[in-house]
Nucleic acid binder design. Structure first.
Lengths: 204, 204
DNA sequence: CCTTTTCTGTGTTGATCGATACATAAATGA
DNA sequence: TCATTTATGTATCGATCAACACAGAAAAGG
C-alpha cells in the first residue's frame, strides 16, 4: 500500500477508541477538539490529518461503536431460538451493557446527539439512521417469529418493534441517571410482561 | 413593592416562555446566550439583569415548563379512578403532548441536559431530581392501587414505576426521531399490555 | 546523496462562547 | 428640581471553539 512518508507514531484504532469514549461520555457537542486530542494522546493537527474533521471523527467513532459494542447486544436476536427469548436476551444484555461501571452508561447511538443544531445536522441524521436500522432488526426478528408460527399471523411486528426499541432508548436515560443493572432489569421484566398479551388475543 | 427605577420594557414571563422553547429545542449546551436573547426579544445585559445567568435562566425555564406543560400529563394520575386507567391516561397524554406539531417534540426534563460536563453539572442534577420526582409520583399512584385493593399485596410498585417511567423517557427519544402520535401510541399499547402480567401472578 | 511524501509540534486564525463595563434613559422619592 | 434607582443599548471582555499555517522530522524512491 502507501507506506511513503513519515509513519504515524500513534495507533489509529486505539486513538479512535479513546475518541469514542469521549463522545460517549460528553456527546457530540460537549466533546471539544481539545478534549478529544488530549484523550487520544495526540495534537489537533494529527487529529485532523488522520480523521478529517470533528464530524468525520464522530461518524467513524459511532461506526466503531456499532462494530465493537453493538454485536454483544444485537447478536442476541440470532442466537436465541425463539422470538420471545431473542427479545428477552436482547434486553437483558442491554441492561448489563448499559450499567457496566468501567464504561460510560447508556448508548452512544441513543444519547450522542439529540439536539440537532446547525453544525450537527449530519450527525443527528446519521444517528437517526442507525436507530432506524435497530428498529428494523427487531421488526425482522419478530416477523421471523410470525413466519415460524411462534407468533400469530395478525401479530403487529412493527408496533411491537417500536415498543421494544423505545424501551431500550428509555433504558439509556435510566442508565445515565445512575440505575444499576438490577434496576434496569425491572424495566426488562416490565417489557417482557407485555409479551403474553402482545402475542395473544390483543386484537380483542 | 419595589417600583423604583426605570420599569422593564418586556414581559418577564413571556420572555421566559420563549427561553423555555429555545432550551426545549436545542438543549442546555446547544442554546447560546445569543440564541436566547434573540428569541426573547432582548439584549444580553437585560437577560442577565432579569435572570442572573444562563444556568439560573435554565432552572427557571424548567420550573416554568413543569408548571405549564407538566400538569396536563401528570394530573392524569389523580383524575383516573383506577391505577390502570391512570397509567394509561398518563401515557396517552404523553403520546399526544410529545408529538404536537406546534411544539418541540419530546420532553425538556428528559432531553434538556443528558451529558454532564463541568459547566452543566448543576443543571443535570436538577433535571435528575425532577425525573426522580416523576418516578416517585408514578410509584405513589401504584401504591395507592395496592392500598385500594386494585393491585395484589405483593405488587412491586417501585419496579413497575421504573418500567413506566423508562417507557416515557424512551418516548421522548422516539418523538425526537419524528414519531407520530399514532407511532407513540404503539409504545403505549405495548406498555399497557404488560399490565395483566404485572398485576397478576408475576411472582410465579 | 537528494527529492518526495507524510506526520508531528508550536503557534495562531477568525468566530463564538458566557458574561460585563459603561453611558444613557426612564421611573420614584424627597 | 434633583438625587437615587433600575433598565436599556452599544460595545467589549477574556476564554474557548473548530480548524489550520508552517517549519522541522522521519520515512521511501531514485
Amino acid at each position: 500500500m502507501s507506506e511513503r512518508g513519515r509513519p504515524r507514531t500513534f495507533d489509529r484504532t486505539a486513538a479512535l477508541r479513546r475518541a469514542m469514549d469521549v463522545f460517549w461520555v460528553k456527546g457530540y457537542e460537549g466533546a471539544s477538539i481539545s478534549d478529544l486530542a488530549t484523550a487520544m494522546g495526540i495534537n489537533s493537527p494529527s487529529l485532523y490529518a488522520a480523521y478529517g474533521s470533528k464530524e468525520a471523527l464522530f461518524l467513524e467513532a459511532t461506526d466503531f461503536y456499532s462494530r465493537v459494542e453493538g454485536p454483544d447486544i444485537w447478536l442476541a436476536l440470532e442466537e436465541a431460538p425463539t422470538a420471545r427469548e431473542a427479545i428477552e436476551l436482547f434486553l437483558t444484555r442491554t441492561a448489563k451493557a448499559y450499567s457496566q461501571a468501567d464504561r460510560p452508561q447508556g448508548c452512544l447511538i441513543t444519547l450522542g446527539a439529540l439536539h440537532q443544531d446547525s453544525t450537527s445536522g449530519l450527525i443527528c441524521a446519521d444517528l437517526r439512521r442507525r436507530r432506524a436500522e435497530n428498529h428494523s432488526a427487531l421488526q425482522k426478528r419478530l416477523e421471523r417469529g410470525v413466519a415460524e408460527g411462534e407468533l400469530p399471523i395478525d401479530f403487529d411486528s412493527r408496533a411491537a418493534a417500536t415498543f421494544f426499541a423505545t424501551v431500550q432508548h428509555g433504558m439509556s436515560i435510566q442508565a445515565r441517571d445512575g440505575a444499576s443493572c438490577t434496576a434496569l432489569m425491572a424495566t426488562v421484566a416490565g417489557a417482557m410482561a407485555a409479551w403474553h398479551t402482545l402475542a395473544g388475543v390483543e386484537k380483542a
